[in-house]
Write a protein that binds this DNA or RNA. Structure first.
Length: 530
RNA sequence: GUUCCUAUCGUCUAGAGGCCUAGGACACCAGGUUUUCAUCCUGGUAACACGGGUUCGAAUCCCGUUGGGAAUGCCA
């Protein structure tokens, strides 16, 4: 049977990079294995799920090239099915109401007591736990509640589902058995609403079982069953809870592999029981580590730049983002980093995914984006720049031919498309002068005189190409006793207001020497920063 | 509190008991090319969290400690 994996986002707000990284891994995983990549939109949270959020999701996926197979499933269309499944559970004794008989009561799923034969449950042998006599041991259908004394002498309460305490015995002070869970009374306990309360217990003893599964990324994972509780599957308003809906839909969509964030590791232990209760073989899981922000913390609402849409706005190429995100928590095992889609699909082995969280590095993404820009065909680059310039005022003054020349000078200098904001001095007057640059290059008196001497030379307007312009600058340097090239940066600051840019002579050539003469005069009239 | 997960340069990572004097990339620093800026090239600083074990041999396997994260929701 071929592999079927899904991306199942809840469309609440913007699409987050952590989320889309999960989509990328699912995509690469299925494409590598020639399987199917399904999309399911978990829109059951009516309060927060919006049309805009769904549109934003499709938009992001399309932009990144994440094409999915088959029809999209909207989870809200499945809610009748979810409720039906819950009813079947109740009929089979696998679910019960929290407050029986009450109108608005949630429904809980019971972790099956007779689970020794389940393929994901195993025994860890008998354990004995000292309990505090200060609080009673309570047992009912929801499980066992008991208290222990911690190393500081504090009484701490613990609770777990019935299934966690196979063959439970509660001992009194003299070691006598106060209560025992047996095949004879288990059915009765399973229906007990009011708990059996056992005072003055000294210890409990039971067979500890644990739930386990083999994660493709994290290898074998396990958790004691006595640390898991029965859980709600239907809310008091009758709506299905995530756990139920998620598992039901995975079954409906015939999902074979679940690739998701490792914040779901703990849910998996419960979902395993759900799959089993519905008679479906448990899928294979792969839990991906999270992406954290520059301070090493999980992304929160404050980290504004974590949305896919923001990266698009900032001028990142979709493939650069895709490539970078694929490398966050995965590597092909060799030194390759810049990879085509085909290469990534070919190399993608989910087992090579990292076990621990990865920190997002904006600088590395920018560098990779710059590398992709550098190798772009010039026309494509120029077209994107022209579109991008829409958001900058200078575009109003820009002649497309001049813009083209500027773009050809700037391609190797562009990391992100918003960098082209800095091209404004080609199309409009310098509004701001870099303070550091002015202090460094426009302060010296002789230097200012040398610059002044350039004004009439430029104003004459007979220097037509870069090498003539270069000669003029060389001459001024010689006349004022400067070494070769000493004047370049001063001219740059005076003409462009900044210390970085394209080649100086080419820049002046595009601008025209007359305009540069005006700008030098204007720059020399600026007050020097303190 | 309990349970689960996790730990290699500042960051992303390579590493499957001997190929490790720990490799690559980003960032940073220095030098070169460009008489300037950027690209580019060369070089450099920089890591196996700590403590025990297993082994002839440990970044790698085991245990513990510490740090980080998660779950313990009628959120998903």
């Amino acid at each position: 049977m071929s592999i079927r994996a899904r991306f199942a986002p809840s469309p609440t707000g913007q699409v987050h990079i952590g989320n889309i990284r999960t989509a990328i891994f699912n995509y690469l995983f299925t494409r590598h294995n020639k399987g199917e990549f399904l999309l399911r939109i978990e829109d059951t949270d009516l309060e927060r799920s919006t049309k805009q959020a769904i549109d934003a999701l499709y938009d992001c996926m399309k932009w990144l090239g994440l094409d999915y197979d088959g029809e999209v499933m909207y989870q809200t269309t499945q809610s009748e099915h979810h409720k039906q499944v819950a009813k079947e559970f109740a009929a089979k004794g696998l679910a019960y109401e929290l407050n029986p008989g009450e109108e608005n009561t949630p429904v809980l799923f019971r972790l099956e007591y007779d689970c020794d034969s389940f393929p994901f449950v195993r025994s860890k042998g008998m354990v004995k736990v000292e309990v505090s006599a200060e609080a009673p041991v309570k047992i009912n259908r929801a499980g066992v509640v008991y208290s222990t004394v911690n190393h500081k002498g504090k009484v701490v309460e613990s609770a777990g589902c019935l299934a966690g305490f196979k063959d439970l015995k509660v001992y009194g002070k003299e070691g006598e058995i106060l209560f025992a869970l047996t095949s004879g009374n288990i059915e009765e306990i399973k229906s007990l609403v009011e708990p059996v309360t056992i005072e003055n217990a000294s210890a409990i003893e039971f067979e500890r079982r644990e739930v386990y599964y083999n994660d493709l990324v994290k290898k074998e994972l396990s958790k004691p069953l006595d640390s898991i509780k029965d859980f709600i599957i239907i809310r008091s308003d009758k709506s299905p809870v995530f756990h139920l809906a998620n598992v039901c839909d995975d079954i409906t969509q015939h999902v074979t592999h679940i690739v998701r964030g490792d914040d779901h590791v703990e849910n998996t232990y419960r979902h395993l029981f759900l799959f089993h209760a519905m008679g479906y073989p448990v899928p294979v899981y792969a839990h991906l580590p999270m992406i954290v922000n520059a301070s090493g913390k999980p992304y929160s609402k404050r980290d504004g730049d974590a949305f896919v849409g923001d990266f698009r706005e900032k001028g990142f190429l979709p493939h650069a983002l895709f490539n970078y995100l694929a490398l966050l928590g995965w590597s092909p095992g060799d030194d390759r980093e810049k990879m085509s889609m085909e290469e990534m699909i070919e190399a993608f082995e989910i087992e090579k995914a990292q076990h621990s969280a990865a920190q997002f590095d904006f600088a590395k993404l920018s560098n990779m984006n710059g590398a992709y820009i550098a190798e772009m065909a010039f026309d494509e680059f120029e077209n994107i720049c022209w579109d991008f310039a829409e958001r900058f005022e200078y575009k109003g003054n820009a002649d497309r031919n001049v813009f083209r020349k500027v773009a050809s000078l700037m391609q190797s200098r562009t990391k992100v498309f918003t960098d082209i904001a800095a091209w404004s001095y080609f199309f409009e007057d310098v509004k701001e002068y870099d303070a550091k640059g002015m202090k460094k290059f426009l302060k010296d008196e002789t230097m200012r005189n040398a610059l002044s001497s350039l004004v009439p030379v430029f104003a004459a307007g007979d220097l037509k190409d870069a090498s003539a312009i270069e000669n003029a600058i060389r001459n001024a340097e010689t006349a004022f006793g400067f070494g070769q090239g000493k004047l370049n940066q001063s001219v740059r600051v005076a003409v462009t207001g900044t210390t970085v840019g394209a080649g100086m002579y080419e820049t002046i050539e595009i601008l025209g020497t007359e305009k540069c003469a005006e700008r030098i005069t204007k720059a020399l009239a600026q007050p020097l920063p303190a």
